[in-house]
């Protein structure tokens, strides 16, 4: 994948070990606290430094609001930014599902004929490394600026390529010995697909899902910066920023972060349900 492939698994292991402890070795609460104490302390320290710096250097509130101000704004604005967040999340999810379904279907169709997938892969990989979100204004024109479909289609396009690429890889990068085994059973193509290729593709697919979950939230918000419904989080952020209401913008950004993380975690749980064997295999290999 053209995504930061090295970073993602490392991050994933961290998250997994922490949030779903039964996968790795379960850390006891005390151990866990001790392990994460430095990070928590550092975070609190940074917030304190931020707060102090704004006070000491008399930084204008509209340039960099204090964390305490952001926190109180967050609480005050929650009735507005939470529904906005959900609105945007729906776009991200809708686009995600659309992109995944298309990516998987096309991968299944093309990997059947290696000539097509071999020919198409370089293009898919090339397109995947372009800033697809730059298409946002065009989609806004096509579907209408307030139509959630405009954002969903951007998200879908962004999700489509990693899912397509990974699914094709998973379906085609099958162990030769495993294929010969199937051949020795005189297995039909259906059996090879369902008993070998698809299970083989699942880990590839989930790694695409996880990368795409983050991308889809980013894509939905960024495409809203180019204009969209008043109910959308990206529109809220860009409008508040334009009005120099930076505390409000920061509060909304917190919501965006939480959505991205929640989506990612939901996929980790889903992965565990679908492929318990793979999650434990990974844990065992560590």
């Amino acid at each position: 994948m053209s995504q930061p492939a090295d970073l993602i698994p490392a991050l994933e292991e961290e998250l997994e070990a922490e949030l779903l402890p039964e996968a790795g070795q379960a850390l006891r609460t005390g151990q866990r606290l001790r392990r994460y104490l430095p990070a928590i302390l550092l975070f609190l320290l940074a917030l304190g430094a931020w707060e102090m710096a704004v006070n000491v250097f008399h930084i204008e509130g509209f340039l960099l609001p204090k964390p305490t101000v952001i926190a109180s704004t967050f609480v005050r604005e929650l009735p507005v930014i939470l529904p906005a967040g959900l609105f945007t999340m729906r776009e991200a999810l809708g686009g995600f599902v659309l992109g995944c379904v298309l990516g998987i279907l096309i991968a299944l169709a093309t990997s059947r004929w290696s000539i097509i997938s071999d020919g198409a892969m370089p293009f898919a990989i090339a397109v995947n490394s372009t800033p697809i979100v730059a298409l946002a204004p065009i989609m806004n024109n096509w579907f209408g600026i307030t139509n959630p479909l405009a954002k969903m289609s951007i998200v879908a396009v962004i999700v489509f390529f990693p899912v397509l690429i990974n699914t094709v890889r998973g379906l085609t990068q099958v162990n030769d010995g495993a294929l010969e085994l199937m051949r020795s059973y005189a297995a039909g193509e259906g059996a090879v697909l369902f008993d070998l290729r698809i299970p083989n593709a699942l880990p590839f697919l989930f790694s695409a899902f996880k990368v795409s979950s983050t991308l889809s939230v980013i894509a939905a918000i960024v495409s809203e910066y180019f204009g969209g419904s008043r109910d959308a989080l990206g529109v809220y952020i860009s409008q508040q920023a334009a009005l120099f209401h930076f505390a409000e913008a920061w509060a909304a950004i917190i919501v965006a972060c939480l959505m991205g993380v929640a989506f990612y975690l939901a996929l980790l749980v889903f992965e565990r349900l679908v492929m318990p064997w793979h999650v434990s295999l990974r844990a065992a290999e560590e």
Binding site: N175, G177, A178, E180, L181, M182, S184, Y185, A186, A187, A191, D195, L196, P199, L202, M275, W277, H278, L281
Partner: peptide, 29 residues
């Protein structure tokens, strides 16, 4: 006619199947 059983240097068991399910693979096919 499925007259052959084959075993290679690599066991080539399917990661996603338990031992029992691996043994059942040819029977499912």
């Amino acid at each position: 006619d499925r007259d052959y059983g084959m075993v290679f240097q690599q066991a080539t068991l399917y990661d996603w199947r338990t031992v029992r399910k691996n043994v059942q693979l040819p029977l499912e096919v």
